[in-house]
């Protein structure tokens, strides 16, 4: 059943070993846009009006307590912003040798790309709320995510969705493996990155390889990958202030940022967000215990 896993692990390693960072970023980023099919399917279903009353009324669904509601809220926050992304993004800036000229591209990424990812996530949830929740289906497998798109667009829609999901999952495997290499190498002061030859950054590449092997071994066990992801994103949310706060400090340091330090209004928003992240960090573990991890 999972015999193909070593092959995928090999493909992940080969991609990281052989393909340039910018090529990985552009190829998987652009092809991942296939997931927009979830947004189109939701709109095409003509049933989005069902979602509005619940969206306007912010309260737990019937039969769900406030602690569980907030636990899943934290899970969503953790899924949208995990600490490893900070490392892959900042290391990517060095890998690609960003300059001031790249600011526009990155602003577009932040103001268009990130919200687009959020809209796709909302469409996935909206599809589940319309097609699955009324039947009493609680999503616990990736295959269930395909059912709403399949119901609206049939085989073509499902094929596009599965392609997009495959790209997104493969891209996430690349990102997390490389991120492990960046985090460990930068912490211990080793030479890192794909901008130097592998022989010049052996410990970085060894870390990436070991991470891929460990991931493949974990996937070969009977551990539910969705549960592992759920727990890891919740615990990531708890750790978010540890990565967010240093970035906020650097964003206000003219030695690093020159004349591009945060403006006072931006700092006010950033500080409010930091407070939110601190509350989340404090509440995560107690909520996990009280709700038995959202059960």
């Amino acid at each position: 059943m999972r015999a193909w896993l070593p092959l995928v692990a090999l493909l992940v390693w080969l991609t990281i070993w052989r393909v340039r960072f910018s090529a990985i970023e552009k190829f998987y980023g652009l092809l991942g846009l296939a997931l927009i099919v979830t947004v189109i399917a939701l709109i095409h279903s003509g049933q989005t009006h069902i979602l509005w009353p619940e969206a306007k009324h912010l309260a737990p669904p019937k039969g769900e307590g406030l602690p569980t509601y907030f636990y899943f809220g934290i899970a969503l926050l953790g899924a949208a912003m995990t600490p490893y992304e900070v490392f892959i993004f900042s290391s990517g800036a060095v890998e690609e040798g960003w300059t001031r000229a790249d600011l526009m591209v990155n602003r577009a990424n932040v103001y268009i790309g990130f919200p687009l990812g959020g809209i796709i996530s909302l469409a996935l949830m909206g599809g589940a709320a319309i097609f699955l929740a009324p039947r009493g289906i609680s999503v616990s497998h990736l295959s269930q995510v395909g059912l709403p798109v399949s119901a609206v667009f049939g085989k073509i829609g499902l094929a596009i969705l599965l392609f997009g999901m495959g790209i997104a999952i493969f891209g996430a495997a690349l990102e997390t493996a490389m991120s492990a290499g960046y985090i460990l190498s930068q912490y211990f002061g080793w030479q890192w990155g794909k901008f130097v030859r592998p022989s010049e950054a052996p410990r970085f590449h060894l870390t990436v390889l070991v991470t891929i092997l460990l991931g493949a071994c974990l996937a070969l066990t009977t551990v539910d990958p969705v549960k592992v992801t759920e727990y890891s994103i919740v615990l990531s949310a708890a750790a978010l202030p540890l990565t967010y706060f240093p970035i906020l400090v650097v964003a206000n340091d003219p030695d690093y940022m020159g004349d591009k330090t945060n403006s006072p209004p931006l700092n006010a928003i950033a500080f409010a967000y930091l407070v939110l992240l601190l509350v989340v960090a404090v509440a995560t573990i107690p909520l996990m215990i009280v709700t038995k991890a959202g059960q």
Partner: peptide, 9 residues
């Protein structure tokens, strides 16, 4: 039954 999905899926 409505032929909206694939056999492997």
């Amino acid at each position: 039954q409505r032929r909206k999905t694939f056999s492997p899926f």
